[in-house]
């Protein structure tokens, strides 16, 4: 809750209006409105509304960099996976290289984003004091380190390889690094879903099994988009783009058909709009452009762009939904009433 407030006569008058409205109608359903103690009379604490309707949970404290990081890291990770797959299947070396470089760029961008959220570089090092398999954040931190290292090593080796002319050891190194970056990159594309899913926030944990796949599809779509926008128009990419968009459609449809108060933040308000926009952009829109665009490169690029924009919206939307969800005490208080949480106890 915001704690600083300098009331003036106008704001007080506005507040009084709100309170009156709240008194008459029970509540004032507008964004960011919590006039002191409203509605009138204040909602008595009850089993239904909790403690004056105040949140049970704390909102995420992450700054704006975090969803951007989810996006960048995911796309880069998927790029690394694509480059490795391309390399293994003997696809065009230029494609491999492009994908590697895009992955490396993402890998280079990710740590600064995280550090900026944390405040100071040393703080990131604290992450590496321990490795905790049960902490997605720890797994993620190590994944990021491994990915950044391997993705940039792969790109660097590639550079060396080109500058110095083919050298087997360098190429072996590049391939090894590429393989590692592919594995860790897949981690980058998916762990952020685990990171959100394995929390106490209902809108997130209700989708614990969805989010990793959702984010993976989103990452794949944006990786394809990035590579295409960098000038490639391989059919394989289009096929992958179609697959990613199809997966997004499935995810979107499943989200839209499920109901429940804890899913409301995914469908309403700014967060809901972002998630829906992200879903449409990277799902049906990207899919349609690719399907009906035939061989048009422009249409594919448009699809790629849509997937990228969609992916960004998706990440920002999901983090925002977490904020909204954390503010709603009702699902938290009533969780588990009617249903057993799917549980593992490893």
């Amino acid at each position: 809750m915001t704690r600083e407030r300098i009331p003036d006569d106008a704001s007080e008058q506005a507040l009084d209006e709100l309170r009156r409205e709240a008194g008459a109608r029970g509540a004032v359903p507008r964004d960011g409105i919590r006039p002191a103690g409203a509605p009138f009379p204040m909602p008595s604490p009850s089993a239904e509304t909790g403690y004056y309707g105040l949140p049970v949970l704390k909102e995420p404290t992450w700054t704006w960099e975090v969803p951007i990081y989810f996006f960048v890291g995911g796309a880069a990770g998927a790029c690394a996976a694509l480059s490795a797959a391309a390399r293994w299947t003997g696809a065009d070396a230029a494609l491999v290289r492009k994908a590697r470089w895009i992955a490396a760029a993402g890998a280079a961008l990710s740590p600064p984003l995280l550090i900026s959220d944390l405040g100071r570089p040393e703080r990131f090092l604290n992450m590496l004091r321990v490795a905790k398999i049960r902490s997605p954040m720890s797994v993620g931190a190590w994944t990021l380190v491994a990915f950044s290292t391997s993705a940039s090593a792969a790109a660097f080796a590639d550079l060396v390889d080109r500058r110095l002319g083919g050298s087997v050891p360098v190429r072996v190194l590049a391939d090894a690094a590429g393989a590692l970056s592919a594995v860790t990159g897949l981690g980058m594309a998916t762990y952020t879903g685990v990171l959100l899913g394995a929390t106490a926030i209902p809108a997130w944990y209700e989708n614990a099994a969805v989010l990793p796949a959702h984010f993976a599809a989103s990452a794949l779509g944006s990786a394809v988009g990035l590579i295409e926008l960098s000038g490639r128009s391989d059919r394989a990419l289009n096929a992958l783009g179609l697959a990613a968009a199809a997966a997004e459609i499935v995810v979107g449809a499943s989200l839209e058909t499920r109901r429940g108060r804890s899913l409301e933040p995914l469908k309403t308000g700014r967060a809901g709009a972002l998630i829906r926009a992200g879903g449409v952009l990277s799902g049906p829109l990207a899919f349609g452009l690719r399907l009906f665009g035939g061989r048009s490169i422009t249409m594919r690029r448009a699809a790629g762009l849509a997937a990228l924009a969609g992916s960004l919206c998706t990440r920002i939307g999901w983090v925002a939904a977490g904020h909204v969800s954390a503010r709603d005490p009702i699902p938290v208080l009533n969780a588990g009433e009617d249903r057993d949480v799917e549980g593992g106890n490893d």
């Binding site: 049960r134 997605p136 799917e342 106890n345």
Partner: peptide, 17 residues
């Protein structure tokens, strides 16, 4: 009413990942 430790969601989440 029924608080759950978030790690119970690790298995489905990682499975999905």
């Amino acid at each position: 009413e029924r608080p759950e430790v978030p790690t119970v969601r690790l298995r489905p989440a990682w499975r999905s990942a």
